[in-house]
Amino acid sequence: MIELSARLRSADWPEKPVRLQVRHRFSGVMNLVGPDEKRYTLLTRHIDFQPRSLLCASLPAHDATGEEQYSFPPVEVGFDPELRLPFPNPRWKGMWTEWPTLETGLSPEEVEKGVQLPESLLGRGEGFTPAGDDLLSGMLTSLLWLDPVLAERKFLRVEPMLHNTGWFSRQMLLDTMHGCTWKRGKDLCMALCDTDAARLLESVASILQWGHRSGAAWLAGLGVGLCLADAHNGG
């Protein structure tokens, strides 16, 4: 039994101890897989919150390789991954129309093809999470938020093809399809509903700092979805 020095949890973190196996270990983050094949994450920084994650004082020192039972004290919810928000403030349209063409490593042609055939983005491009997966995740996030009918049409094409990418990305996309997102992304969506320019700029910067280009690809996808939803709604 490994005891975790938990501080806060995401709203969807299990309440009882859980058997997990370590998949990736980084300096401030550990990704583990549960019996349900789902990703569970141990974090040391609040900003890194995502679905099914636990903020700890420190990561367990012990280098477990097999399945282990992980226990943790009851802690408060520090992050709700579900995205339920009103419409974004139309004032920011000039901003979000910049995002589809951010440098992500994907060409504008690949992005355009991805909009029509989202499954073509799976596993495409470089990065721990391939840029195409990040773009897809961002796009599905904003579409699900603003145009669920259009979003569902896109999901229907993607879901059967998820084996075309790695486990971690697959988990990210499945969470997205269930209306759940990472803290940086949720902060940005909330800022888009607000009127505070500094808050918006800070949250965009936070996303762009993520990974090498993962953040930019996700943001580009979010922008694509915002543009599509806007056009679809007669914007």
Binding site: R91, W92, K93, G94, M95, L102, A197
Partner: peptide, 17 residues
């Protein structure tokens, strides 16, 4: 390097109307 600078006139005007 870590602040976002808008890439277009319209982006900038949304920040500084």
């Amino acid at each position: 390097k870590t602040t976002y600078q808008p890439k277009s006139l319209d982006g900038a005007l949304s920040i500084l109307p």
